[in-house]
Amino acid sequence: MTTVSPAPAAPVTERAKVRTLTQEDARTGLLLISPTLVIVLAIVVVPLLWSVLLAFQEVRLITVGRHSLFSPLTIENFRRVFTSDVLWSSLRTTLIYTAASTALTVLLGLIAALAVRRPFPGRTFVRASMLLPYVAPVVAVTFVWKIMLNPEFGIINEWGQRLFGWDDPIAFLSQRSGELSVFGLEIPVPVGLLTVIAFEGWRYFPFAFLFLLARVSALSADVEEAATVDGATPLQTFRYVILPQLMPVIAVVTVLRTIWTFNEFDDIFLLTGGAAGTQVLSIRVYELLTVQQNVGAAAAQSVFMAGVLLVLISIYFNVMRRRGGEVL
């Protein structure tokens, strides 16, 4: 009966209703996000800014409870950090450690992902086992590594001496540099640093493995079959068919691992305590804080560390943008 009259009215009321719904949703959205915002601002953003402030103030560990936000500013902490003779050597150690560990992690993860790619009996068990180093408590696995590598009763040294004819036990975690003789040439080897890099590879390859396996399992089989029909060998198939499709995931994993390895503290602290040529920047911050009890200098050192990280990240973004690729 009312076939004509409501028709022009309907869109108007509907639009009005939609607008209020959107507004209401926006209000609900802010309400729902606010607990997160509060905690992230209070426990992360404000402390980050505060650590910049602390870096410009004189604060000692003993007087930290009485420290005032408005104590006078000074650049003494930065002078201390930059004139220290260990700054550049620990920066260099950090960069070598980061690059080598990340490369090893991604390489091992890639090999593992390709190996368990196709279904076989027991695949679930194998996959879960390979993730164990990543999920187990860092304190427990570093402790086991320390005992395995122990020069007196560690199993690696025992077996090395028995099976591979090592002359003396190797102090993997307390030796800055050893000599490796190859055909009469004595090559210096940074034993401590290599050992912590090997540990990083062992502990974090599961992370790369997990992401690469997810991608590699989702690849369509058609292109590979076509390549096989055209006579491509497995190596060629990998190089020209599989690898290009994995590159985006490899890039993401590499970036994340680079950042996290750069920030790494626990593993090195628990394995070597920063001795034997493994003093990375985060260990240096910790030493300034607890050994020298200088909170201001520790903050300055940590701000320097965050600065280096920011520089690395912005270099990456610039390179990616120039290449015209996607950033992440």
Binding site: V44, P47, S51, L54, F262, N263, S302, M305
Partner: peptide, 10 residues
């Protein structure tokens, strides 16, 4: 992305 140790001090 920030180092945990940077947060730890404040």
């Amino acid at each position: 992305m920030f180092p945990g140790i940077v947060l730890a001090i404040p």
